[in-house]
Amino acid sequence: MADISRYPGFRHLRGAPTVHIRHIRKGRLVHEGTGQSFWFRPRTAVLSEVPVDDRELPMLFHARTRDYQDVTVQLTVTYRCTDPETATNRIDFSLDPDTGTWRQDPLSQIANTLTESTQQHALKILATLDLEEAIKTGVERVKAAVAENLRADHIGMEIIDVRVVAIRPDADMEKALQTTIRERVQQEADKATYERRAVAVERERAISENELKNQIELAKREEQLVVQRGANALKQAEDNARTAKIANEAKAEGIQRLAEAEAAGEKARLDAYREIPESTLYALAAKELAGNLPEIGSITLTPDLIQPILNRLAR
Rank of each mutant, 00 (worst) to 15 (best):
S5L: 07
Y7M: 07
Y7D: 04
P17R: 10
H20I: 07
I21F: 06
H23G: 08
I24F: 05
K26D: 15
G27E: 13
H31W: 08
H31M: 11
Q36T: 11
W39V: 15
R41M: 14
L47Y: 06
S48N: 08
E49S: 08
V50L: 01
V50K: 02
R55A: 02
E56H: 01
L57D: 01
P58D: 05
L60F: 03
H62Q: 11
R64A: 02
T65M: 02
T65Q: 00
Y68D: 09
D70E: 06
V71F: 01
T72R: 04
V73W: 00
T76E: 03
V77Q: 00
V77G: 00
T82K: 04
T88F: 03
T88V: 14
N89P: 02
F93R: 03
D96W: 05
P97E: 04
P97H: 06
T101Q: 09
W102P: 05
W102I: 08
R103D: 09
D105F: 08
P106Q: 12
P106L: 10
I110F: 13
S117W: 14
S117A: 15
Q120Y: 15
Q120A: 12
H121P: 05
H121E: 15
A122E: 08
L129N: 07
E132G: 12
T137E: 12
V139W: 03
E140K: 10
R141E: 14
K143F: 03
A144N: 05
A144T: 07
A144Y: 03
V146S: 03
D153P: 01
E158H: 12
I160G: 04
V162C: 06
R163H: 12
V165A: 09
I167Q: 04
R168V: 11
E174K: 04
A176Y: 05
T179N: 09
E188T: 12
A189H: 14
T193F: 10
T193D: 14
R196W: 07
A198L: 14
A200T: 10
A206N: 09
S208K: 10
E209A: 15
E211H: 07
E211T: 13
L212H: 04
L212R: 13
K213G: 05
Q215W: 03
A219H: 07
A219P: 01
R221K: 12
E222N: 10
Q224I: 10
L225H: 11
L225G: 11
A231Y: 11
A233F: 05
L234V: 13
N240I: 01
A241W: 04
T243R: 00
K245P: 00
K245F: 01
A250Y: 05
E253G: 06
G254R: 13
I255D: 12
Q256L: 13
R257T: 09
E260Q: 12
E260V: 06
E260R: 13
E262F: 05
E262S: 05
G265M: 09
G265Q: 13
K267P: 01
A272S: 10
Y273V: 12
I276E: 09
I276A: 09
I276L: 15
S279V: 14
S279T: 15
S279R: 15
L281Y: 08
L284W: 07
L284F: 09
K287A: 14
K287N: 11
L301K: 07
D304H: 08
Q307W: 06
L313K: 03
R315G: 09
